[in-house]
Design a protein around this nucleic acid. Structure first.
Lengths: 346, 346
DNA sequence: CTGAAAGCGCTTACAG
DNA sequence: CTGAAAGCGCTTACAG
């Protein structure tokens, strides 16, 4: 009854190579602690040598606990969701976890989520702005299951965090504007309840402080990450007697709004006003002129998050130290920035 | 060595209930043709009665062919990708298929794709605008593997197609504008190489024909589904001596561009110009004013597509008739439409 | 057209 | 700390 000829290396092959039983190999790959160190390393060496990787179907059939990773999402990040899912789907199939996605809103009860996390999920990945919800903060600090927060500037006890350096990115963007010759650079702040807002603001201030004595407070407006709020903030900024030659908006939606505000005033971007955003959302490249902005490696973050959750889950006995991963960002230069124009006459 | 007590019904239970061997049950659920009809129905009845559903891990371990469904994607639909993936991920885990996503560009060779489809994938789902690529058309008409085209207006031999009725939706949108009192309704056409463009255009023409003798040709501009092209087209439309009171753009990006063009001319939307889009992309709700537009049930389409591919794959001996599924669309009324203003003075 | 039985590659209770 | 062995729930070659 020979079926397909064996081609892949199995746990039994490893056991033979290491001179132990297959039960022992199983214990090693599952991180059970009752294995002598010497044995463990012998097995690990064999695994390495044979390039063994366990058959997922067999593990599950044999009663291994299936791993379900939940990716939370909510409305505001819908543009962002595509990339997130892209990375997460790929990585999940790599690590043999199944991915579930769950919609949540600001109001979700901690109770509801905790129940899910305890009974249905083996780990969660939390992108912004959800990671700043109170209920999530509470939930995650339980530390009951592996959790990773994406792009959150908060430190949460017992949660892994992955983010780009928002402070640095904002500083670099501002410095780029300065290098082009701008001095009157306005800033539109992000939503006060989202943790990245402050980091970006601080980066702007840091860069400005290097070239001006005091940052003009009338060059700073509060925004809420929406197109409308960016449009309104820019309208105020541009209505001043001494208007800025550049506007740095904390995200792309607001930057697009700022362009609209400039258009309404008959100002041409970038000739008479430079505008930069943040996030490289789809809007950044569809608006006219396309926005210079900061790109986060969203898909890669999601993929890495999946791997981290998986590793944490597998690493039953191991160290439970929360990781703090820094991802690289990129400044995407498009067409919304130019050297400052002679004072716009209006 | 009793392990967890059995809770779920297995193939063996079904076999007992039906009075056949488990091999026979296996044959039935796998659609093998050499089973007597009487036996088959007895088994199916038992499956139904016991609410049996096969254990995926066991199937795979036992050598069942794993099903990999590939979802193709490309740049332009990146906003759309999130919803697509959302639906696809959920449905894939439901039907026990693994989902892989692959990036393709207009230039992909049929050869490359055919190779993948033959060797790595068991079915593909093709969203727009990819479904209009030549290489895809060729590939899919091979009929070698289950394929479903999303939102394509083309008929492709041997491929399933799911779409909303673009013609009807466009007609309804136009009729809504007409009901508000508009008569001078301009239309910005979509990319000439995408198959939905024509359906939407025809819907517009159909509705207009009911209220005007001849549709003014100077009210129709060519666009390319980009913000920029919408902006340019609208600028031309609005520069006419007898400008339209409303613009219907074939997608949201162009509609957003049209708003920008209006803003530049000092026209206020919707007071002096109504604008509607199509797709309900993220931009539709972030631009100001938010766009009235047509929403496609993208996630549901993707989910349904996954189920169809799965069914086709399983249904080894069954009928191979390509399906033609019509999904419902919705008109989302937001704030970019109003009754026509007195002739704008300019 | 159908059944008996081996085997897929693991995990884990049991027994040292 | 380790091994022998049963069992997870299917599929399929073989033998009628």
């Amino acid at each position: 009854m020979q079926k397909r000829q064996r081609k892949v290396v199995t746990l039994v092959d490893v056991a033979q190579a290491a001179g132990v039983s297959s039960a022992t190999v199983s214990r090693v790959i599952n991180g059970h602690s009752q294995v002598r160190d010497a044995t463990r390393s012998r097995v690990n060496a064999a695994i390495e040598r044979l390039d063994f990787s366990p058959n997922l179907a067999a593990r599950m059939l044999a009663g291994a606990k299936e791993m379900r990773i939940c990716l939370l999402y909510t409305n505001p990040s819908s543009s962002y969701l595509g990339e997130l899912l892209l990375g997460a789907v790929t990585a999940s199939s790599e690590v043999g976890a199944s991915l579930v996605v769950e919609y949540v809103e600001e109001g979700v009860s901690t109770h509801y989520l905790r129940d899910k996390l305890l009974n249905q999920w083996d780990g969660i990945i939390v992108p912004p702005p959800i990671c700043d919800f109170n209920s999530i903060q509470e939930l995650v600090s339980d530390g009951s299951k592996p959790s990773v927060l994406l792009s959150s500037s908060m430190e949460v006890r017992r949660a892994h965090v992955m983010r780009i350096d928002d402070f640095l990115a904002a500083r670099q963007v501002t410095e780029m504007l300065i290098a082009k010759g701008h001095r009157e650079i306005a800033f539109i702040k992000g939503h006060p309840r989202q943790s990245v807002s402050e980091s970006r603001y601080n980066g702007y201030i840091e860069a400005m402080s290097q070239v001006v004595e005091n940052v003009r407070p009338d060059l700073i407006e509060q925004g809420f990450f929406t197109y409308r709020s960016g449009m309104d903030a820019a309208a105020k900024l541009l209505a001043q007697s001494d208007p800025p030659s550049a506007i740095f908006a904390s995200n792309d939606d607001m930057a697009a709004g700022a362009i609209a505000a400039a258009n309404k005033l008959g100002l041409s971007v970038p000739k008479e006003l430079s505008v930069v955003g943040f996030d490289d959302s789809p809007m950044a490249n569809s608006v006219w002129p396309p926005l210079t902005t900061v790109r986060q490696p969203v898909a890669e973050m999601a993929a890495e998050a999946v791997r981290i959750v998986r590793a944490d889950f597998d690493n039953v006995g191991g160290s439970k130290q929360p990781l703090n991963v820094d991802m690289d960002h990129f400044i995407v230069e498009r067409e919304s920035v130019a050297a400052p124009h002679l004072r716009p006459q209006r």
